[in-house]
Design a protein around this nucleic acid. Structure first.
Length: 174
DNA sequence: GCCAACGTTGGC
DNA sequence: GCCAACGTTGGC
């Protein structure tokens, strides 16, 4: 029996590598390099499987939000950018014969119809335990449960964002 | 720009 | 093995 598909979330700084960058990349595919955290590395190396689905999250953005869905198209392999001194994420301690860091290939699959913001996620019942929402959570690669996935996917594919109370009053007061 | 929280490093 | 110092992440 083939194992069940799993769900993930990856973060990217929007002004560094955005959803649009991925969408416009050749074959809408990129290698997800630069992860330099062991917990995240382990997931990329050992648990990401072809066909798994991945939320694409913009951090350091306005607003911070989940903006689309990607698919894993290549499973964990050594992150060669760690071997290149000219690369930003160069790590002299990673040995090509025994690589420290791993990456996967991700392909953009479907943009959300609207960004689902961090602020909104915090208000949604059923997401209380989501890794992204835990205090101090900074993992750039995270597991997402199937339940969480379904809730968030539905929000992303619903055109209208629920009107936040603050936003409504601000719009009126202009 | 600020700062809380986190992970890593290195002295002991 | 402890823990202080440091660098980084990332929301605000």
């Amino acid at each position: 029996m083939t194992p069940a598909r799993r769900y993930w979330l990856v973060k990217s700084e929007a002004d560094c590598f955005s959803w649009d960058d991925l969408w416009n990349a050749p074959r809408r595919t990129t290698f997800w390099d630069g992860v330099r955290n062991y917990q995240a590395r382990n997931m990329l190396r050992d648990q990401f499987k072809k066909g798994d689905l991945v939320f694409f999250y913009h951090s350091n953005a306005d607003p911070t939000a989940i903006v689309g869905v990607c698919e894993v198209v290549r499973e964990g392999y050594p992150d060669h950018t760690a071997f290149d001194p000219r690369k930003q994420h160069f790590d002299p301690k990673s040995d090509p014969d025994k690589p420290t860091w791993y990456m996967v290939d991700l392909k953009a699959k479907e943009p959300f119809r609207r960004p689902v913001t961090l602020a909104e996620l915090r208000t949604v019942p059923g997401l209380e335990r989501m890794v992204l929402l835990q205090k101090g959570s900074r993992l750039s690669v995270q597991p997402v449960t199937e339940k969480e996935w379904q809730i968030i996917y539905r929000l992303g594919m619903t055109a209208e964002a629920p009107r936040a109370r603050g936003a409504a009053s601000k719009a009126r007061s202009r």
